Amino acid sequence: MPNDFFINTESVQVEPDKVVMKTANRTRLDQPESADIDVSCDQKMIDTETLTNTRKLLNSAIISAWYAVKSERRPPALTPTRWVWRLAAFYHLCHSTPRLMESARERFALANRQSLAQWAAQKAREEAGHDLLALRDIQSMGYAAEAVVEALYPPAAKALMDYFTQSVQDSDPIDCVGYSYTAERLGICIGEGYIQSVEKLLPPGIKATRCLRAHSAVSAEVDHVKETLQMIAGLTTEERDRIAKACYQAALLRFSPPQEAYISDEEIQNMLKSLKLTNNYA
C-alpha cells in the first residue's frame, strides 16, 4: 500500500473479499463481515444475498484500485520522526470529519434520504474527538501538538481531505459514503501486531498510538464497517454503484505514491526542530 501513513505498505496483501495482514508473529485473516448485523441508523431488514453482494461490490472496488496502482515505489522505513509526520496526517483526516458529516446529514435530510442522513449523523458522533487523540500522540512524542499540525499537512492527507470535501459539497453528497467505507475498511486491516510494531519503534515509555488504535481492528471500527455496509445494502442499485465508484476513487488516493519524492526524515526534523517541548508529558 504505497501511501506512507495509516499502515505499513509491506504488511498488507489484498485478495478478493478478504484482506490478509502479516504481522511479526502470525498472519491474520480478516474474513468478510458477518451478515448478522443490527444497525441503529437503519432498521430495515436486509436479506443475506443483498448484503453479501454489496460487500463484494465495495471490496472489489477497493481491490481494483490496489491493482490499478500497483506501484513498485515504497515509502521510507518508519522512524519516530516519520511517525510524527503520520500523526499529523491522522489529525488532518480526523479534524474536519464531524463537520463534514454534519453538512452531509443536512443535505441528505433536505432530500428526504433518511437512512443516509441518520448514517451521516452517526458518523459525525463517532468521529468526534479523534483529532484530539492525534494531538495527544504528537505531544507524547515531545512536540507542541497544535504547532505541529499547523506546520505539517502531508500531501496524501490533503488529497484525501480535498476529495472528501468535494464529495460532501457535490449536488449529491453520496460519494462521502464511499470515502468513509474505504477508510474504515482499510482501517480494520490494522491489527494489534502492527500497532505493537509501531510502539517498539518509539522511545521507551512513550504512548503515541491512541489515534491509530481508534482506527484499527482493535477498536469499534469493525462494527462501524458492518453498520455502514448494512445501510448501503438498503439503498438502490444506482446508489450502491455510485458508492462503489467512490470507494474506487478514494482507494486510488490511498494507494498512490506521491508524485514527488517521499519526504525525508531530515526534512521532517528540520520542520520540527523549533516545535519541541521543553517538558514532555506522555
Rank of each mutant, 00 (worst) to 15 (best):
Y67F: 12
P203H: 11
Y153E: 10
L93G: 10
C189G: 13
F164T: 04
Q166D: 07
L87S: 08
E184Y: 00
P76F: 06
L160S: 07
W85K: 04
S140L: 04
W119I: 01
G129W: 03
I195P: 07
T182I: 06
V198K: 00
E184N: 08
V148W: 07
Y143D: 04
T182R: 01
L201Y: 12
Y143V: 08
K123N: 13
R185H: 06
L135C: 05
A124N: 03
T165M: 02
T97S: 12
W85D: 05
E106I: 13
D172A: 09
E102M: 04
L100Q: 14
Q196Y: 02
S180K: 13
D131I: 03
I188L: 09
A124L: 00
E192T: 08
P75D: 06
E184T: 14
S96E: 14
V148A: 05
Q114T: 08
T81P: 14
N112M: 02
Y143A: 11
L78P: 03
S180Y: 10
K123V: 14
L135M: 10
M161S: 03
W66N: 09
A147V: 00
V177A: 01
A117R: 01
M141A: 04
Q169W: 06
P204N: 13
P98D: 02
D162T: 13
G191D: 13
V177N: 03
K158G: 04
R107P: 08
M141F: 00
A147F: 05
E102S: 10
R113D: 06
E184F: 11
A157V: 06
T79K: 05
E126C: 00
P154H: 07
R125M: 14
I174N: 08
M101N: 04
W83F: 08
E199R: 10
S140G: 15
E150R: 12
Y91C: 08
L152V: 04
H130F: 06
